[in-house]
């Protein structure tokens, strides 16, 4: 208990330092946030153009599609705040600066995680909150208990995406390079999930439900939240997001620790 309190205290202290460091580049900071928000808005415009002549994509009308997309962006924003810098773990390993995390009396995972608190993710929030808000009113939604599912989806989604970032980063403990994997696995997977899962073949659906559970990030929760019926998976699965997120993250964390053990025995 004491150590948990201390951990939280230490984390908030380091977060403060990290934010101060990022605020040193104020102009870049603002441009970064606006840039992200614009990029997502661009994707939304593409979706709008896409549906202009066709009306719906496998029964998903424009605002439903926007909601699906924005839900993924929202939890990605939360994930980025805590875990985005795991993407550059390989650079720390290559130039030897990772060793510093091993000569301090705190847990290396915790230490690395606390090192950066990415405030650039506010661009994601800017876009996704506006988009979810617009979709909510345009689709005439009236949530009560669904707010809990929504919250669960954001937390679960952040854990699932953060977990994959952590798992990809730990590959660097073996190979010293992992950045490429991000572009081959994470990026296409995230793009795939911007559209309803039902349009993809069964193999892909099974993959994103049972192996890399990205279906729990947005598609399955969106089924409940928008009151849709899934052809393949019952909507209630979407409520399981936080649970799936916790399990997946725990597994990825174990994998990271396994990588760390390998690093400790083989060096870089």
């Amino acid at each position: 208990m004491v150590s948990i309190m201390r951990g939280i205290g230490l984390y908030s202290y380091m977060v403060g330092a990290s934010i101060r460091a990022q605020l040193q580049y104020r102009y870049a900071f603002v441009m970064n946030i606006l840039g992200w928000a614009m990029t997502y808005a661009g994707t939304a415009v593409t979706m709008w153009v896409l549906l202009y002549s066709f009306g719906a994509l496998d029964g998903w009308i424009f605002w439903e599609l926007i909601f699906l997309f924005a839900l993924a962006v929202l939890s990605w924003g939360v994930c980025m705040i805590f875990f985005f810098h795991f993407r550059s773990l390989d650079q720390y390993i290559v130039n030897g600066t990772f060793d510093r995390f091993l000569v301090r009396p705190i847990h290396p995972f915790f230490h690395f995680m606390a090192m950066k608190f990415d405030v650039g993710a506010f661009g994601q929030f800017l876009f996704s909150i506006a988009a979810v808000g617009l979709a909510y009113s345009n689709l005439h939604l009236h949530w009560t208990w669904q707010w809990l599912v929504f919250l669960g989806a954001v937390i679960g989604g952040a854990l699932i995406q953060g977990g994959l970032l952590v798992a990809i980063s730990s590959v660097a403990f073996w190979t010293t390079r992992s950045e490429r994997l991000y572009w081959v696995i994470m990026w296409p997977l995230k793009s795939l999930m911007n559209y309803p899962l039902s349009i993809y073949p069964r193999l892909v659906q099974l993959l994103v439900v049972f192996i890399l559970p990205f279906a729990f990030v947005n598609y399955l929760p969106a089924l409940i939240l928008l009151g849709k019926t899934g052809r393949v998976f019952a909507p209630f699965w979407g409520a399981l997001s936080p649970l799936v997120g916790a399990i997946f993250f725990a597994l990825c964390f174990r994998f990271w620790m396994l990588g760390l053990d390998r690093y400790k025995s083989a060096g870089s």
Binding site: G9, L10, Y13, M14, A17, R20, A21, Q22, Q24, N95, G96, T97, D99, R100, V103, R104, P105, I106, H111
Partner: peptide, 23 residues
Amino acid sequence: FGQRTQLWWDLPTIESFELLKQV
């Protein structure tokens, strides 16, 4: 480690000391 600093790159030096005090 001579070639690799253990200090926080973007922060004033004193902040690194304060952080280590916490750690």
